[in-house]
Design a protein around this nucleic acid. Sequence first.
DNA 1: CCCCCCCC
Length: 607
Amino acid sequence: MTELTRGVIGDITEGAHPDNPVLQILSMKKIPSGEQERYRLLVSDGQYSSSFAMLATQLNSKVQSNEISNNCIVKMVRYLCNTVQESKKVLIILDLEVLKSGSEVGHKIGEPVNYDPNKIRQELEPSRQMMSMAQPQASKQSGGVPQRNPLAQRNPPNYGSGSPSKTPNGGRVHCIAALSPYQNKWTVCARVTNKSAPRTWSNSRGEGKLFSVDLIDESGEIRATAFNEQMDKFYDLLEINKVYYISGATLKQANKQYSNLNNEYEMTFNRMTEITPCHDSTAIPMMQYSFVSLDQLDKVNKDSIVDVIGVCKDSMEVVNINTRTGRETKKRDIQIVDDSNREVRVTLWGVSAESFDGSQQPVIAIKGAKVSDYNGVSLSLVSSSSFQINPDISEAHKLKGWFDNGGNSIDTINLSNQRGGASGGVGTVFKTLGEAKLENLGGRAADQADYYSVSATVSFIRKDNCMYPACPGEGCNKKVLDLNNGLYRCEKCNREYDTFNWRLMLSVNLADITDQVWVTMFQDQAEIVLGSTAQELGTMKDNNKEAFDKVMMDAAFKTYNFKIRVKMETYNDESRLKSVVVGVTPTDPKEYARRLISEIKQLSGQA
DNA sequence: CCCCCCCC
């Protein structure tokens, strides 16, 4: 039978820090606090009950998954007790193990009395007992009366693992998790885990420069930003991996769209802010992650920021990329896999891309990757992201063990199915034409393309102007002018040729059961749909109109999987969505039926 | 007070 650590709530509020105390969670309350929800818990040690406990936000998922529920018995593996508002105690549970589920226990154990530090401890009876499932022999040795854990009081009070509890001025160190805009006198002791490059901005509200850092302590994490003068003051002082006392910054609601740090607030340094290095800091953790298992990524919204960990199964070469804004940069795609048997593509940029070495198939832990819907799901690092190679954390060791013991040869599902993964075909997410219109694909921003795949039928092909004589110059393909003297002039190459190539630029209407759309198909795709080469068609067009018309006729009412790029394009101040087919394969009826079945299962909740 | 973050 699982026993509670009787009386331990009193011990903890008095400053003790026993290892692995066992409590029962009597009830939970969601605290309304902005976007980041928090749970306050009514806990019992069998003797006392108190609602002073809060769940660290990284454990919220255990409530949502019902692993933590009313009446469950938990062992507090990591916790800390802080004083807020002069004398109020708050217990923050950083990590716990559920020993017995709420449904297994089913009721409140004993008759705990509400703990009031000023009253109850004086009336305390002497036999406070430690009983735990983990130490049955301890209770036997002491003649059936379990003793308190002898290690219980060795740790210093308040901070579990010896983090500084005093500031250099002798004040108390606050924990990051307890910071809020409603508290104005505080000092935290925090490690910098990430530091951005300096950046400037200029918009209608003004211009300036800034940089930001991610700060963590044992209780939690927070982002801090320094603008203008504060950037000049603190940029060189704050170094990654070093620890600082920080006080007097502004706290405001964090915009979760741009961060996945587990904090509903973020910090802005101001002219009152003081930052001094801390040299007594071994216990401040190095990094805090909230990993999302790869099999959960398809449930995450596009553009979300997530932490992931995986084994780098495959690493592509570095390639040069020209961005839309004309800048040149480098990228490297890697493929990471985890023990949910999923793999996903991750894109690294710039220096990270160049220096990354995937040859030893390392574990990579990524903080703050951005979720993209390209080819299903893929991830991309952004400037606020960071990653660690083979970090010394349990998740990494667990994954490496899984990978080396068979995980590396498992047939995984590739969420970024560009390499012949589970769903095959032309890649990207399948939608109906109706869905593509409804989701406003391509309409989010100028010059921003969206891709989707659709199984659709060719309903009409425009014959007029469907092909043109093109420049035979290597990779040119521009339209040439027939000089009617056997020469053809290309304006782009600024020269005449004695020959030209036929190029197709086909305007095609596609239909499925939901809608229709006009798309453009260039050479390669048009040749597949027409079943003839551009050269053959060019000859027919000039010499055998009947054969040409027959090709066009025969091409209609055939069904393909089209991969379509949608983009907003503007001509003469008029914007319209333009759809270009970038891939065509015949629809395989078996694969199509399988996809429909899987969609039906998902819609009916069976998947 | 930023929040752009790239390519297929």
